[in-house]
Design a binder for these strands. Structure first.
Lengths: 105, 105
DNA sequence: TCCGTTACTACAATTATTGTAGCGTCGATC
DNA sequence: GATCGACGCTACAATAATTGTAGTAACGGA
């Protein structure tokens, strides 16, 4: 009955990160916060997930110091979160190419 | 009773892509294929998931033309898959920094 | 024929996620 | 000082996704 933490048990940062980013709605939440802070409900409506899971993911992202809650403006990316987002921005352009090549999207 | 496809219903490529990559084990599988082809069981052992879900994800990745099965060598990234992986490579280095900054990993 | 390797499937048990409803706090308004 | 809306968030039963174990079917070599 080993305590199973999600994903890799190696603890290597890249594995932990890939596991975190591979949880449902996580990438999407980071993406939705790319331009400006969002309120809890606003975020929930934007992605169309249940409040339960939105709250769970936000807690995980806050624990990972990628997202923070500013009382005045809402949820927003931290400095680390913005760094991560910057790495993901090329995905936007690439996804268009990918869509054309595959017809999937 | 609307037909609900996973994730975004907008069909915008970036949303479809974020949804695909946000499924459990998908990022990890792409990562495991970064250097060389892997056999089904080898892949399964490496990530520690059930054969059911490994097979499901491989089917999705093949449909998305990111992964292909070569009878002689095993599962490997397609040209598109390698392009995607290249976008992700900076994550490796960044994850080390992130781990130090957060203590999460 | 038998054995190993291969990709993959069946299926019940467990875990994650959804959908709906609602709670508790705070600040503004009457 | 009662009421109201906005806010973050929780409860909980129903549904969907994932696991773990076992096994199938095709193939090639001895």
């Amino acid at each position: 009955m080993v305590k199973r933490v999600r994903g890799s048990r190696t603890g290597r940062p890249i594995m932990v990160l890939l596991d975190l980013l591979g949880r449902r709605w996580v990438l999407r939440i980071v993406w939705e916060l790319r331009d400006e802070p969002r309120r809890f409900r606003e975020l929930q409506d934007a992605i169309g997930a249940s409040p339960t899971i939105v709250n769970t993911r936000l807690a995980e992202l806050r624990k990972a110091k990628l997202v923070e809650l500013d009382a005045a403006s809402g949820y927003r990316l931290t400095v680390l979160g913005r760094e991560l987002l910057r790495l993901f921005l090329p995905l936007h352009l690439w996804s268009e190419k990918w869509a054309k090549a595959t017809g999937v999207a």
